[in-house]
Amino acid sequence: MKRLLIPALIALAAGCSDNNSNSNPRPDETTPPEPEPVVNAIFEVGVVNLTNGQPLSPIALALHDDSFAAFAVGAPASAGLELLAEGGDNSQLLEEVEGRVEASGEAPLGPGGEETFVLELDGDDVSDLHLSVVSMLVNTNDAFTALNGVDVSAMEVGDTWMVNAVAYDAGTEADSEAAGTIPGPADGGEGFNAARDDAADQVTMHSGVVTSDDGLPTSVLTQMHRFDNPVARFTVTRTQ
């Protein structure tokens, strides 16, 4: 209200200095302008599984502010990330985000597969907007790939970029590759287990799987499960 009063006072003062202007009253400035229709910002995220033998667990995606990070190298994994990285269940991580938009794939994304997600904001405010995408390599103990809170606030409509993503190790489960410890189809074993028995309780990059064909006789994995970086490709486009 104060803002409206000040121009009105100025108009009055101007009127005082010019006696002939009284017959031309100014238009009523207190009428609110027509509200412009709000266009929701939309981001499309394409995911390609670049591996030979590692299905990606249902992709978890979120747009959030910089108060959230899915993980940091050298820091312990959150409970939600542990659940995702050991068992492919992204539900708890998506709860931890408390973001502006969350989404999840409905099924694992197989090797060579491609999937596109549409993230629509409520409104067009993209300030302090960050994108995280996380998914488990399911034929491993606790490997995952991710986009970790990439700043998308400067993206204009039509902007697009692509990044190749590496494999991380959640550090919550030893990489034994033993029968019964891997939830993917190579084993059908246990997924999440609350015990944290890796060398150090911290996220690092993944060292790759050894497999029974390459020096680990007790591994249920074979050469076809081996992978190298990058393991996934993310393409992000702001479409609206």
């Binding site: 990489d175 990059m205 060292s207 790759g208 020096g215």
Partner: peptide, 27 residues
């Protein structure tokens, strides 16, 4: 080309642990 390692802490071909000391780039 990466280290090979093995699964045998007291023998085998390597004194490096295949499940601990391998790496993939970047390091």
């Amino acid at each position: 080309r990466g280290v090979l390692g093995d699964a045998d802490p007291s023998g085998g071909v390597s004194d490096i642990d295949a499940t601990v000391h391998r790496w993939l780039n970047p390091v």
